[in-house]
Design a protein around this nucleic acid. Sequence first.
RNA 1: GCCCGGUUCGUCUAUCGGCUAGGACAGCCCCCUUUCACGGGGCAAAGACGGGUUCGAUUCCCGUACCGGGUACCA
Length: 510
Amino acid sequence: MTEGYLCGMDRKVRVRFAPSPTGGLHLGGVRTVLFNYLFAKQSGGDFIVRIEDTDQNRFVEGAEQYIFDTLAWCGLQPDESPAHGGPYAPYRQSERKQNYRKYAEQLVKDGYAYYAFDTTEELEARRKQIPNFQYSHATRMQQQNSLSLDEATAKEKMNGPHVIRIKMPENETVQFTDMIRGEVSFHTSQVDDKVLLKADGMPTYHLAVVVDDYLMKISHAFRGEEWLPSAPVHILLWKWLGWENEMPEWAHLPLILKPDGNGKLSKRDGDRLGFPVFAMDWTDPKTGETTTGFRERGFLPEAFVNLLALLGWNDGTDTELFTLDELVKQFSMSRVHKGGAKFDYEKAKWFNHEWIRRLPASALRPAVSELLQHAGIQLADGNLLDKVIELVKDRCTLLPDFIQQAGFFFQSPAEIDTAAIKPKWDESKNLFFTELVRAYQLCGFWDAAELEKEFKELAAVNKLKPGELMLPLRIMLVGGKFGPGVFDIAGLIGKAETIRRMEHVLGLLV
RNA sequence: GCCCGGUUCGUCUAUCGGCUAGGACAGCCCCCUUUCACGGGGCAAAGACGGGUUCGAUUCCCGUACCGGGUACCA
């Protein structure tokens, strides 16, 4: 603990997010980014994105661009990355391929690793015949490698395909301090001889993270809890490569779990339960299948970031709403939870609702405007839009809700829910509304308060309860049982439009 | 199987030995509003289990149970 603290003290904070570009970025990934970002920014450090594309078989077209697009949407800009450049370029591991071999060879030379010649087929057969086969201290001498074979055979085999494996000690304890979990320790007897360098010359994740974290001077390494079991491999590598004093501090983040049952959240759960899992729409280039993202579902980036931050972290008070800047100030790794959190879509929507209410119309305008136009609604008056947004945003949980809540301000309702008023419709009401139309026509002024006053006076003259007349008026102007105060609506859509809508519905009711 | 991690209301969580266990989401009720919301008020709801340690354990230790992660030439 002390050791890590001391070595972190005189070092600039540099963190990295290291995704492999294999598909859409989901919740958990973005949260890992967020925690990295918050931690770096609060101490004036650097946030690096490094693409871990060491598995050529899993390369997916467009996945890398998608990652940068979602970071941009979230407002989490990297300081260094393949897209942003930086002093430690390249930031794509496939482009750093030539870096890794020498470290693996050095480990072999120092006796910490060895060459292995077993083919994939041989290993598969092994695993089939021995239930829990592990390539480890217990079995390595029965395998084809530079430790078990005589020198001549091994030398000859070196001409063919081979990998480099780490030689895990038979009986050692590897201990380290995790910023979230405290002291964690492993017995090396339980961990297998992981491949460090593959037959194609590419490093595996295990070698690549260590080498690149070292080369890129990473001070703190945050990743998901699923990496905890391989931590001893990485720690031993830091030690054996002679970089122990520069090893980053570790933090293994808790997982985000599926809302029902068990297990970590996957994109399938979203499909199954009807909520997004990816940050933005992701179209699989192979199947052409599109998975809906939070953005397209109508989430604000402010809300998305906010809800992610609160999944596994809190500031110790009852505050739940934070801007990114506030998060940067308040965030603390020591307050990150150890346990996994089930994702709750209802709560996620609540965050979005709160953010829609919080933001001024001007901030909402671009998104709402685009949404309305996509729905075929013409926005003649830009000034009106801001007023409408301000008036209806309390009723919108997701951005698309604005289509229903704001659409009728710009366009006469296509459908009129006459069924809602017909049962109680009678001649006295018909008369009232006919008179109201006339009264409004004569109106010299046009604002909500006056319209309401006029309405109530006329109701009183006709000995009708205003309450019974409000719903019909709403249906006339809105088309259905929703929207803000009726007179506010009338005030905003204007005299001509109000009268036109009233007359139109009056005609339907005859 | 083995290894590692985790375990407070249905869900996200507060509590760093003193608790009548607090907040939020969702649920239910009432008020406000004769739309729907917002808002206000209220109800209901939790420390997996068993042992220690202690004057005192949700909090510390040990077991058990349950959940999760890992166990690839994937990350």
